[in-house]
C-alpha cells in the first residue's frame, strides 16, 4: 500500500466511531499495542521533549527504506505515534518527503498537532522528515 492508501485506510477506520470515547479508546488501544522500541535507543538525543509529554524517536535505513522506532510516556500521544509509524515506516526517503500527512486532521485529532499542545508530536513529525532528508542526502553522496 502507498502512504496515501494507508492514510485512507486509517480515515475509514476512524470513520466508524460515533463519539470521542470510542475514538480515544481505540487510540489508547493502539498506543498500548505499540511495541518494538528498544531500550538501547532511549537516549537523550532521541528524546523529543514536550512540556506535557515526551516522545522518543529512532530511525535507521535498511535496504533503502527507513525503519522508525518510537515511543511516548503518554498513551494518547503514543497512539498517534503508532499511527504515524504505521503510515511512514518502511518507506524510502523520497516517499516520505513527497507525501503530505493529512490523516491526523481528517480523523479529528488535529488539536494534538497544535504547537500549543506541547506534547512533542509536532516536533516528532518534523524529526521524521529530517531523518528522511538526511538519509536521502547520505544515499546521494
Amino acid at each position: 500500500m502507498t502512504i496515501k492508501e494507508i492514510q485512507e485506510e486509517i480515515i475509514e477506520e476512524f470513520g466508524a466511531f460515533d463519539d470521542w470515547m470510542d475514538k480515544y479508546s481505540y487510540l489508547i488501544e493502539i498506543g498500548n499495542d505499540l511495541e518494538g522500541f528498544e531500550e538501547e535507543y532511549r537516549l537523550s538525543n532521541n528524546l523529543i521533549e514536550g512540556c506535557q509529554s515526551q516522545v522518543w524517536l529512532h530511525a535507521e535505513l535498511k535496504d533503502g527504506k527507513i525503519q522508525y522506532m518510537a515511543d511516548s510516556d503518554a498513551i494518547i500521544v503514543k497512539g498517534i505515534v503508532a499511527l504515524l509509524v504505521r503510515v511512514l515506516n518502511d518507506r524510502t526517503p523520497d516517499e516520505i518527503l513527497d507525501n503530505e500527512l493529512y490523516f491526523v486532521e481528517q480523523i479529528g485529532l488535529k488539536e494534538h498537532l497544535s504547537p500549543t499542545r506541547s506534547n512533542g508530536l509536532v516536533a516528532m513529525i518534523k524529526q521524521m522528515r529530517i531523518y528522511a532528508l538526511a538519509f536521502k542526502a547520505k544515499q546521494e553522496s
Binding site: 480515544y24 512540556c51 506534547n119
Partner: peptide, 21 residues
C-alpha cells in the same frame, strides 16, 4: 499511573478544565 496528559485530554472532552504537568 495514568499519564496526566492523557487524563487532562480526556477530561477536556467532558468539558472539565484541569491543569496537567
Amino acid at each position: 499511573n495514568i499519564h496526566p496528559f492523557d487524563m487532562g485530554t480526556l477530561l477536556d472532552k467532558m468539558g472539565l478544565a484541569v491543569r496537567t504537568g
